[in-house]
Amino acid sequence: MTGKGRELADMMERRKVDILCVQVTRWKGSKARSIGAGFKLFYYGVDSKRNGVGVVLKEEFVRNVLEVKRVSDRVMSLKLEIEGVMLNVVSGYAPQVGCELEEKERFWSELDEVMESIPTGVRVVIGADFNGHVGEGSTGDGEVMGKFGIKERNLEGQMVVDFAKRMDMAVVNTYFQKREEHRVTYKSRGVFYTDNEFKQVPLIQVVLPDDWETTAEVISETGRKVLGVSSGRRKEDKETWWWNEEVQDSIQRKRLAKEKWDMDRTEENRQEYKELQRRVKREVSKAK
Results as ranks from 00 to 15, higher is better:
M1P: 06
G3M: 10
K4S: 12
R6T: 13
R6I: 15
E7T: 12
L8D: 02
L8A: 07
M11L: 14
M12Y: 01
E13N: 08
R15Y: 06
D18L: 07
D18Y: 00
C21K: 04
V24P: 05
K28V: 06
G29N: 06
I35N: 00
A37F: 11
G38H: 02
L41H: 06
L41M: 12
Y43I: 00
Y44R: 14
K49P: 01
K49N: 10
R50F: 02
G52Q: 05
G52V: 07
V53Q: 04
V55C: 01
F61H: 09
R63A: 13
V65H: 00
V71F: 07
V71K: 12
R74S: 05
R74V: 07
R74I: 03
M76I: 05
I82E: 04
V85W: 01
V90Q: 07
G92E: 06
G92R: 06
A94V: 04
V97P: 00
V97H: 11
V97N: 12
V97R: 13
L101R: 13
E102P: 00
K104Q: 07
E105H: 08
V114P: 09
V114L: 11
M115C: 15
E116F: 04
E116N: 13
T120S: 14
V124W: 01
V124P: 02
V125H: 06
H133C: 07
V134G: 04
G135F: 08
G135M: 11
E136D: 08
T139D: 15
T139A: 14
G146F: 01
K147W: 05
K147D: 10
K147R: 15
F148Q: 04
G157A: 08
G157R: 08
M167F: 10
M169Y: 08
M169I: 06
N173G: 01
Y186R: 10
K187Q: 14
D195T: 00
F198W: 09
Q200W: 13
V201P: 04
I204W: 14
V206M: 05
P209H: 04
D210S: 09
D210Q: 09
I219R: 12
S220M: 12
E221A: 15
T222C: 15
T222Q: 14
T222D: 13
R224N: 08
V226H: 09
V226I: 15
V229P: 03
V229C: 06
G232A: 05
R233L: 11
R234S: 09
R234Y: 03
E239P: 00
E239I: 08
T240D: 15
W242D: 09
N244I: 07
Q248N: 02
Q248F: 01
Q248L: 08
S250Y: 11
R253N: 08
K254Y: 05
R255G: 00
R255W: 05
E259V: 09
R265I: 01
T266M: 07
E267R: 10
Q271N: 10
E272Q: 10
K274C: 01
E275N: 10
Q277G: 12
R278T: 03
R279E: 15
S285E: 14
K286C: 05
A287P: 04
